[in-house]
Design a protein around this nucleic acid. Structure first.
Lengths: 93, 93
DNA sequence: TTATAATATTATGATATTCTAATATAAAAT
DNA sequence: ATTTTATATTAGAATATCATAATATTATAA
């Protein structure tokens, strides 16, 4: 049982505090995908998609893998993954 | 395994996306306390404390119990409690 | 080598957050 | 009844967020 790093942890929550980014993470966990896939799946603009992915990247939740002209973002944060699992398990009351 | 309500869930994360409020929740889970205790524990102003507690209340994370002139805030959200447990279990990487 | 496709960046306006300072309310004590 | 204690609310300034529109970058294709 470790102490909570409130600053570091709150930054993760800040990244997840937007419904689009939350949906992005959920989508990226299922189907690791490039930006265009995210754009199509979520129905948002390319620019907004890129900016949201950048926020997730800067908070250490996802990382990009370049494949030619495409970029594939993958979730890379244990806390985030466990939280998504938790969200699917319990009915958020 | 239920679907995630991204909007509702992101509102919880927004409430937890501030280090002070995160520490508040952690503190309230251990020692259920009145506003003055929170003020003393966290070393913030009475007004800021009250406003942060109000945000936690409005997001359904805590609820107030009036005892005379004091108000005791208690954590009342399963997701939040499980997340705090998770945070203490894993080393946020 | 130019055109195209995929993604990133920047600027900007609208809105939201958060702090401090000041004031208000409500219960208990004097 | 007035004062004190605990808490809440409001106003305002500084800063942050977010969407859109426009432009830049970079890798491949033609």
């Amino acid at each position: 049982m470790s102490k909570i790093d409130y600053i570091k942890t709150s930054e993760i929550f800040k990244a997840l505090s937007n419904p689009i980014r939350l949906q992005m993470v959920d989508f990226l966990l299922d189907d690791e995908c490039c930006v265009t896939d995210v754009v199509n799946e979520l129905g948002i603009s390319q620019s907004a998609s890129s900016q949201h992915l950048s926020i997730l990247k800067n908070s250490g939740i996802v990382y990009p893998e370049k494949h030619g002209t495409r970029t594939c973002y993958k979730v890379n944060n244990k806390l985030t993954e466990e939280i998504i699992t938790l969200l699917k398990k319990i009915n958020n009351d």
